[in-house]
């Protein structure tokens, strides 16, 4: 039974701690002050913007292993003009801890010159996420290969990544630096916390603080020396909070490799000039398009699942066997038709 008093206790907690009525505590505990909000002056540029994204849906699972459909790639823009979308990976992935390494290793070796991966400890759900991330780094690398000096490459996510794959990302950083291409990771949702007693959402509160301290304009804030755990030292770069358009309420976590540190302002100026589309005001438009072009729909997943079952039956497996193997018992409980 839902206890109303417990719910009202949570409501009080939100009122007292999470909603921010005065910036004093926020500033004191995080070390952020008015001067830290740097105004961005959007400036158009001639080069291209590449936006990398990936997508992953579970096709079916038999508890000890599961099958996923994974897609990765990037959208390319020149100014406001969409040029093309490149799909670098679009295939199934069988997540089984015992044989998984064999699917990672060839990519790690051939593309990033890295030796094998250790995944023994990982749980199933993670495996497919890692593989999707690996494919996203490959897309990043592919985009780097296509980019010209001065171009911008955006990644949907953070650069504070899973340890075994950090090596791959470092290689991409090196290649991008060499080519003089700017690399940025932009997170739609970020778990950055602040506060000493309970976990408070840092990005949201910074966004609020920004609307008061730098209202109506785009700005960025560097987290260097701020009292926020954003994986400092775990990867070679710096984290920023950015509002790309003054008319938007949203701010995003942006990660940049250290080679961009001294010119992050001009990179963000360029990006802000292309984060003002009607489709998705305040968010880099190329990422919006990449998300839409690369996402896998539920129908696609369902279609593949049906196709797989068809094949199994053609191979002589009886309906009941297929059901035992593939039906998720949750579907039974929910009375979903399933198979």
């Amino acid at each position: 039974m839902l206890d109303k008093s417990r719910l009202s206790a949570v409501a009080e907690l939100i009122r007292d701690h999470i909603s921010l009525d005065s910036l004093d505590r926020y500033c004191a505990e995080t070390g952020v002050c008015r001067q830290d909000f740097v105004v961005i002056d959007p400036s158009e540029f001639e080069g291209e913007i590449f936006a990398v994204d990936g997508s992953n849906v579970a096709v079916c699972s038999w508890s000890v292993a599961n099958l996923n459909l994974i897609r990765a790639g990037y959208a390319v823009y020149r100014g406001r003009d969409w040029r093309r979308t490149v799909i670098t990976y679009d295939d199934i992935f069988l997540a089984d801890p015992r044989i998984c390494a064999e699917q990672f290793d060839p990519y790690l070796e051939q593309i990033f010159g890295l030796k094998g991966i250790d995944l023994k400890e990982s749980d199933l759900e993670r495996l497919s996420t890692y593989f999707r991330e690996l494919q996203e780094y490959i897309a990043l690398d592919d985009a780097t290969g296509e980019a010209r000096p001065g171009d911008l490459i955006l990644y949907d996510g953070s650069f504070d990544v899973f340890e075994p794959l950090r090596g791959a990302l470092l290689t991409v950083f090196e290649r991008a630096k060499e080519k003089d291409v700017a690399l940025l990771a932009i997170s739609k949702s970020s778990t950055l916390p602040w506060g000493e007693e309970i976990s408070l959402p840092f990005v949201q509160h910074t966004s609020y603080a920004g609307s008061l301290m730098a209202p109506g304009v785009p700005w960025y804030l560097c987290l260097k020396d701020k009292k926020v755990d954003h994986g400092q030292g775990r990867w070679e770069g710096e984290t920023y909070i950015v509002r790309f358009d003054g008319r938007s309420d949203h701010a995003f976590r942006v990660d940049a490799p250290s080679y961009l540190e001294d010119r992050i302002g001009s990179v963000l100026e360029r990006l802000a000039a292309y984060s003002c589309s009607s489709e998705c005001l305040g968010y880099p438009h190329a990422l919006f398009r990449a998300h839409r072009d690369i996402r896998i729909t539920d129908q696609e997943g369902g279609f593949l699942r049906l196709k797989l079952m068809e094949m199994l039956e053609e191979m002589g497996l009886g309906q009941s066997q297929v059901r035992i193997l593939m039906q998720d018992f949750h579907d039974v409980l929910e009375m979903r038709p399933g198979i």
């Binding site: 969409w82 040029r83 490149v86 670098t88 051939q110 592919d142």
Partner: peptide, 9 residues
């Protein structure tokens, strides 16, 4: 790796 698909205008 060789099998990338390009969607164009």
């Amino acid at each position: 790796l060789a099998d990338r698909k390009v969607i164009e205008k």
